Computed example of a mutant assay.
Amino acid sequence: MTIDHLRDALHPDIPGCLWVMRFDAQGEAAPGGAADLARLGQPGEGFLWLHMDLADVRARPVIARIGALTETARAALCDPVDHQYLEYSDGLVSGALLDHERTLAGPASRTDYLRFAIGDGFFISARRRPMSSVETTRNALGRGARVDTPFALFELMTDFLIDELVRMTNDVGLAFDRVEDLLIDGRGREARPKLGAARRDAVRLARQVGGLASTLARLETIEEDPEERTDNDLRETAARLVQHTEALAREMLSLQERARLLQDELNALLNLETNDRLYVLTVVTTLLLPATFVTGFFGMNLKNLPFSESEEGTVYATILCVLAAGAVLILMRRWGLTNPREAEEDRPRPGASGPSRPADTNL
Rank of each mutant, 00 (worst) to 15 (best):
N232F: 08
V209C: 03
G144L: 14
D112E: 15
R178T: 01
N271P: 01
G95C: 05
G41K: 08
R218T: 08
S356H: 13
L195K: 10
V57I: 10
L114I: 07
L320E: 03
A140Q: 03
L161T: 05
Y85F: 15
P290S: 05
E101M: 06
L270I: 12
H11M: 04
T318R: 07
M332Q: 11
L331K: 06
R7F: 03
M1K: 06
A35S: 10
T285S: 15
V93L: 15
L219F: 14
G351Y: 07
G354C: 12
G326F: 15
S89N: 13
G16Q: 05
F298A: 02
A352T: 14
I3E: 11
Y316S: 12
R60C: 02
L37G: 04
R110N: 06
D56E: 06
G121S: 04
A249K: 03
P193A: 10
P130A: 09
L234P: 01
N301S: 02
E223N: 11
A198D: 12
L77Q: 09
G188N: 12
S133T: 08
P12C: 15
Q84M: 14
A327I: 11
A34T: 06
K303F: 05
F298N: 02
M157L: 15
V81C: 11
E180K: 01
P306L: 07
W335Q: 09
A30M: 12
Y113I: 00
E164Y: 07
L323I: 11
L337N: 03
R110L: 08
T169W: 00
D159C: 10
D346P: 00
S310E: 15
A197F: 12
R334S: 02
L98F: 00
A291P: 01
G336S: 10
L216H: 01
E155P: 02
A343N: 05
V242A: 08
W49H: 08
L48E: 09
L288S: 15
E135R: 09
A247P: 00
S356K: 15
L272E: 09
H5K: 11
G196T: 11
N271R: 12
E71Y: 04
D264Y: 05
D53G: 00
W19C: 08
Y279V: 05
L272F: 02
L320F: 13
E101Y: 00
A191T: 02
F307D: 02
D185K: 11
Y113Q: 01
A55S: 10
A105E: 12
A64V: 04
L77T: 10
D264Q: 14
V315H: 04
A175F: 01
N362S: 14
G142K: 05
R258W: 03
R240C: 05
K194M: 14
G186K: 09
F297D: 06
V134A: 13
E251F: 00
R39A: 13
